[in-house]
Design a protein around this nucleic acid. Structure first.
Lengths: 94, 94
DNA sequence: AATAATGTAACGTTATAGGTTACAGTGTAA
DNA sequence: TTACACTGTAACCTATAACGTTACATTATT
């Protein structure tokens, strides 16, 4: 299990994409082709990066869509792993 | 962009987990602690592997939950990439 | 013939990604 | 001080999806 609570991908967008470029959430939302509400929710950790949003981010910031979706997966998985011990699952293979 | 349409994770479960062990969908669903319908939908590509399901699979088959969720991400992303050219996104960074 | 396994339809609940509109708060520039 | 831009977020909408139970038809296998 991963040790530390991974940051929500929204923090990465803010710190490594918007702030360095001096782009506001409002303008970034326009560039991404989504509503301000949608981007704001992601930035503030109240929504996830969907596969389509990962592609949008990759287009806007010349990155890989994979890296964005992987960040979301790792965030989601860390939280799912927190209830690992509470799941009643029988082992089928060693 | 990845070249080939990645298989749905359900095919992996069937081919590499259930069949080698001779375990039925019905029994596997019981072991995983989900309904037969839920597992059947995944195996037949009509549902996705959720983060919690990835943890269940990792418990049942002694694998990493990460590998299961990554398979799902790559499957989802491949499909999202198919509409990359149709998304109206303005580049914000080179 | 009886049983097991399967796919799937029909119904439900809950959650989430997306939208629009509107309002309140903050900061900044004229 | 007034005006404007930016922000968070609430309230409302829709569509999709992950889960559940029950039920039915089909195909195997015993």
């Amino acid at each position: 299990m991963r040790m530390h609570n991974p940051p929500h991908p929204g923090e990465i967008i803010k710190s490594f994409c918007l702030e360095p470029l001096g782009v506001s959430i409002t303008d970034a939302a326009k560039a991404l082709g989504v509503s301000r509400k949608t981007l704001s929710a992601i930035i503030n950790g109240r929504a996830s990066i969907s596969p389509e949003m990962a592609v949008r981010l990759s287009l806007a910031f010349s990155t890989s869509s994979e890296s964005w979706l992987n960040q979301q997966s790792q965030y989601d998985l860390w939280h799912a792993e927190q209830s690992r011990n509470r799941l009643k699952v029988k082992r089928l293979a060693a």
